[in-house]
Structures are given as C-alpha cells and as structure tokens.
Simulated assay, not measured.
Amino acid sequence: MTPHNELRLLPWSGPDGKPCFLSTDTAGGPLSRLANHAESAQLSAGAELLEHAHEVLVDETSDPEELRLLAADLAGALRDALRVATSRGHRLPRPDSSGHGGSNEDPRLPAGAFG
C-alpha cells in the first residue's frame, strides 16, 4: 500500500512528456486501479513485442527499415517497463531501519508481488 505522504509514479506521461504522479490515501481507488491496469497492459505488450523481436531477428530477410521500427518499439517498451519497475519499487515496504527485531537478509516477496 502506498503511504499517503508518497506520490505514485503513474505509467503514463503528461501532454508535455513529463511524469505524472498520484497522491492518494488508498491503493484501491479508481485512478490506482486504472494505473494498475495500464501497467499490466504495458508489460503484456512488451512481452508480445519481445516474442515478435525474436522472430524478426532470426529472419535473415528482415530489412533495415523493419529493424529500425523494431528497435524503436523495443525502446518504448523498455521505457514503459522501467517506469513500471520504478513505480512498483517505490511502493515496496521499507525495511525496519530501527535495528530492532529485523534480520540482515533482504526482504522476501511472494512471486505474485511481481505482476
């Protein structure tokens, strides 16, 4: 859950290309749900593009224009994935910094926490 005093990086940019942020007390509000859905769609599109990239790269008849378009699409998908990772990373719980009762191990999250 995002603490109310932290901003959530949204998975889209504003009209001027600058990042958009959400300030909310709840993680389940309508804009949060929309952002979650957009993140999921971006990651799914990136996975599909990666499969397509493999097909294009193994095809010896792919022309330079197709490869340039693929590179541009992959760069966009990577930008989206990095934004999602940054946003989700900021929302991970912080380790206990008091030094009381904590272990020296890194925090462990269930696989479902990664989308």
Rank of each mutant, 00 (worst) to 15 (best):
N5A: 06
N5D: 15
E6T: 12
L7N: 14
R8W: 04
R8F: 04
L9E: 02
L9W: 02
P11A: 00
W12T: 13
S13P: 04
G14I: 07
G14M: 00
K18S: 11
F21K: 00
T24V: 01
T24A: 10
D25W: 05
A27Y: 14
A27E: 14
G28H: 12
G29H: 01
G29V: 05
P30R: 12
P30M: 10
L31R: 11
L31W: 14
S40N: 13
S40K: 08
Q42R: 04
L43Y: 11
S44E: 13
G46T: 00
G46R: 05
G46N: 13
E48R: 11
E48Q: 14
L49C: 08
L50Y: 10
L50T: 13
L50S: 05
E51Q: 12
H52T: 15
H52A: 12
H52D: 07
A53V: 06
H54I: 02
E55R: 03
V56N: 01
L57M: 07
L57S: 07
V58A: 09
D59I: 03
E60P: 13
T61F: 01
S62K: 07
S62E: 08
S62Y: 01
D63T: 07
E65K: 07
L67P: 03
R68N: 13
R68L: 03
L69C: 14
L70M: 01
A71Q: 15
A72W: 11
A72K: 10
A72M: 14
A77E: 08
L78A: 12
R79D: 15
D80N: 15
A81C: 08
V84Q: 02
A85C: 13
S87M: 03
S87R: 01
H90N: 15
R91F: 03
L92C: 10
L92K: 09
R94L: 06
R94N: 04
S98P: 08
S98W: 00
S103F: 05
